[in-house]
Design a protein around this nucleic acid. Sequence first.
DNA 1: ACCCACCCCTGGGCGC
DNA 2: TGCGCCCAGGGGTGGG
Length: 284
Amino acid sequence: MPELPEVEVVRLGLERGVVGRTIDRVEVRHPRAVRRHEAGMRDFEDLLAGRTITGAQRRGKYLWLPLDSGDAVTGHLGMSGQLLVVPPDKQDEKHLHIRFTFTDGGRELRFVDQRTFGGLFVVAGGAELPSTIAHIARDPVDPAFDDEAFVAGVRRRKTGIKRALLDQTLVSGIGNIYADEALWRAPLHWARPTETLPRPVVRELLEHVRRVLHESLAAGGTSFDALYVSTEGVSGLFERSLHAYGREGEPCDRCGTPIRRDAFMNRSSFSCPRCQPRPRRGRF
DNA sequence: ACCCACCCCTGGGCGC
DNA sequence: TGCGCCCAGGGGTGGG
């Protein structure tokens, strides 16, 4: 389940592995892997053949590769998407959906996705910021992220704090794992109403978000269910540093109380019942 | 303008 | 051993 640190690890791999290279051919093997591309998968293939990749960019969990044509190959890894840079003679992965070969005959770029929640598309003139993802907010690792606008935005919402953290139009890059980890560190209960949070508390929470994202990035990300790997196929090591996510029944690292799991938003929320007590009037 | 439920998908784990 | 069910969950969409 790639979130910001995992996607950033992939972006770094793309920067090393495909930037500056010229695409020879693109082969789409699964129609659903090409998303939001009106003209269809054949057009996707045709637009990319012969183009040179000039960069590797990221906003939140979205990635894009600007091309010398001014277009951009844009994509989201969804739950299980992988962008692998592998030797051409390596056996095809079971869920290999899109293959990019290059004019230099070197390593291929492969989009592999078991659950097909992810996908790629070409955005015309999207080299700067693809229009399709213009609604995605900057992420907390972005130097241009506006902390005070985020604080004000959170306090304007009428929702629970975890919903706000997961809202990619308010702040991007945070998914279930890092939301739970930041809330554990804060510590705040996931249902705490946003409008009751004092400014300094929101600022502090933002710092916890930043810190956990940076720490995870330094560890190569979290490979909780082995579906996330780098472009080189390497798993991240941050799972061993998680305090809340996936630790139901295990003792809280702060107070020893067993971590609880709540069903929420069709997913799980992990928290410490003692450090993160339920608010009296929470937004569940 | 904002909030939220629903749906897309596959494989691993588990109970019977 | 096999079947069916649940779970993982980001984000687009459409309804309220």
